[in-house]
């Protein structure tokens, strides 16, 4: 039995594709190369097998994703996760929100911020820096034209420098991308174990 999840949670659901993923046994050389499948590594998620239908995009997407979320310098990783979470909450991507709320909690060693956001929504009480970061990510995600100079002023007032603001733009924008794959091409589900 599977049940589609409709509420935000840090408990990462299973992602169930709405299209048929590439069958690893029938994958082309180019797909296997992009999937990084080797004899010792044959475990590939349904999500990545789904994206393998567009192998040229898949090849460039993973390194770009990793650079934006993990490259050294600039904004702290937990704050990039907050940018990702803002986008994912706007787009109602339950799966992305779960993964990145869980990472935020892990990096901050605290569930306080994500508990509040999931309980009280976008207007949850946050400190000034998180508030500025989250509000900008939400505005940019709703529609680029909703983000304005007032958001930049709030980010500067909260102490963010140019390198940090650029990383926030990149992480929030990247989840405009990721959400449109995860939320569009599949469902977040719980699979209940069959009781023997």
């Amino acid at each position: 039995m599977t049940r589609v999840i409709t509420k935000f949670t840090r408990n990462v659901p299973h992602w169930q594709p709405r299209v048929t993923p590439v069958n690893l046994q029938e994958a082309t050389e180019e797909q296997l190369d992009a999937l990084k499948v080797t004899p010792s590594n044959t475990k590939v998620s349904d999500y990545v097998l789904t994206l393998a239908h567009d192998v040229e995009s898949l090849k460039v997407r993973s390194p770009l994703f990793n650079a934006i979320m993990y490259d050294k310098g600039g904004m702290r990783r937990a704050e990039r996760e907050l940018g990702a979470l803002g986008a994912s909450m706007v787009n109602h991507c339950i799966y992305c929100a779960a993964v990145h709320a869980a990472r935020h909690a892990q990096l901050e060693k605290s569930t306080e911020v994500t508990d509040r956001l999931f309980r009280d929504g976008a207007k949850a009480e946050l400190d000034a820096r998180d508030r500025a970061i989250f509000d900008f990510a939400v505005a940019l995600s709703e529609a680029p034209s909703q983000a304005g100079p007032e958001h930049m002023a709030a980010l500067k007032a909260a102490g963010l420098d140019a390198a940090e603001v650029l990383d926030l733009i990149l992480s929030a924008a990247l989840f405009g991308w990721a959400n449109r794959l995860m939320h569009v091409l599949g469902d977040p589900v719980r699979v209940s174990e069959d009781v023997a």
Binding site: A147, L166, I169
Partner: peptide, 15 residues
């Protein structure tokens, strides 16, 4: 993604 990067950079240019 690209449209949001452009919109964000434009705001940074002013700030």
């Amino acid at each position: 993604y690209q449209i949001r990067v452009i919109a964000g950079l434009r705001l940074m240019k002013g700030a």
